[in-house]
Design a protein around this nucleic acid. Structure first.
Lengths: 233, 233
DNA sequence: TAGTGGTCTAGACCACTTG
DNA sequence: AAGTGGTCTAGACCACTAA
């Protein structure tokens, strides 16, 4: 039992972290079980559990029933990226937001999009291209395919005023999705829309959202040169 | 009180999710307090708390004392990217891993690096450039600066055999860090090392790790063309 | 100042998994 | 079979903050 009791799960977590960082508990080491730690720290087991579970969620501990808790050998670095609505992202940076609809058409999607969204080959879908600007400068191209089942024909006219990016968030719920980060060279089209040179390196986010397996929309966001996305570890 | 009791926090979470997805509880709505939900679901308040807290962590609910719990109006999409050790990432994809040290020198870092790592302007640091290959093809360039305080001169020779990326994980603990994703065009150097054309778009990860504020290392990972990083939402 | 979420406790039972 | 983490409960008190 230590002299100062650890009466909050945060303080327990800090103590455990300190022991890991000081290498008193090294990667791969088995640490004492919850009951023993609770006694040592002078708190309830649930409190220890909360702390250890949190550290395990963050990837610093490996826990298995019966096998016990070990310090992770390869602390998988989890980086959590927050992906805001584009209008907010621009406003948060202190710039004036602008939006322009470039094109809206109901056509047969390319097979690549059909595959991702699991569409039949003969169904038309809504294709929308628009651009978001910050202080008048192009910020990102939004190139989106919409499953018409989730957006009625009447609703589509709203995209003259509000970006699909923003409208969908509050009007169509989703249950799962995938997201992908990559890089591409600006072609003639992108260079024109983003007013940059052909061949410049652009940051790209692809995102598909679904409601109970069924695809709602698939979007490709092509950012102007220099864009980057940051977070803490 | 519903007929079927919800006796696990997961089932409570599912029920709450179902109500959000069915728009019974819409974005911005105030939902009942924990005590009421506990009674309705026939479980303890702690169980409801666990479920709601988890949903709040995922960004689907906004919770504030006294103000209550609301369905998030702009469900901030949190994407959690898992950043494995490069050797493992390549092995997981079923390729044969290779590693080559390109350069290791103790020199004055450029001011850009000094700023990020908060170095004095006159202190030398260890600069290491190496390359990771998959089935013999260049996969990623690792361009790293090391704070000499954390790695002794004797230890540096190990990087002939093991990449800093892998060695650091198990030998030097860190407490915080920043990570940044971006895109760049291949210059002459990158094109040479990655055997790609000059001007191709490359995906880049910058990462700095610290131990109690003090910078340990700052690395830039420049991936071969076509690299992308994916995750679920 | 009152209502809400945040957390702790002590005890209990269960689920998993290793030896 | 037994040890470990995972979770539930009921009750309690606390911390924050909107009204």
């Amino acid at each position: 039992m230590t002299d100062t009791p650890f009466n909050s799960w945060q303080s327990v977590q800090e103590e455990v972290l300190a022991r890991i960082h000081s290498r008193q508990w090294k990667p791969g080491d088995l640490i004492p079980n919850e009951a023993d730690l609770a006694q040592e720290f002078g708190c309830a087991r649930a409190t220890v559990n909360r702390a250890l579970q949190n550290l395990a969620d963050e990837g610093l501990l490996d826990r298995r029933r019966k096998a016990g808790t070990r310090v992770a050998t390869h602390p998988v670095r989890k980086a959590t990226m927050y992906i805001p609505v584009i209008r907010q992202e621009i406003a948060d940076k202190g710039h004036e937001y602008g939006y322009e609809l470039i094109c809206s058409e109901r056509v047969l999607p390319p097979t690549e999009v059909c595959n991702i969204m699991e569409f039949g080959r003969r169904a038309r879908a809504q294709h929308i291209v628009c651009i978001h600007t910050a202080d008048g400068r192009p910020y990102v191209i939004e190139d989106r395919w919409l499953n018409p089942k989730w957006v009625s024909v009447e609703e589509i006219s709203i995209f003259n005023e509000i970006s699909p990016n923003e409208w969908l968030v509050t009007h169509v719920p989703f249950t799962e999705g995938e997201i992908m980060f990559s890089a591409m060279s600006a072609g003639k089209t992108e260079a024109g829309l983003l007013s940059c040179k052909e061949g410049e390196a652009l940051f790209v986010i692809n995102r598909t959202t679904r409601n109970k397996q069924e695809a709602i929309t698939s979007v490709r966001l092509i950012f102007a040169p220099g864009y980057r996305i940051e977070t803490g570890i």
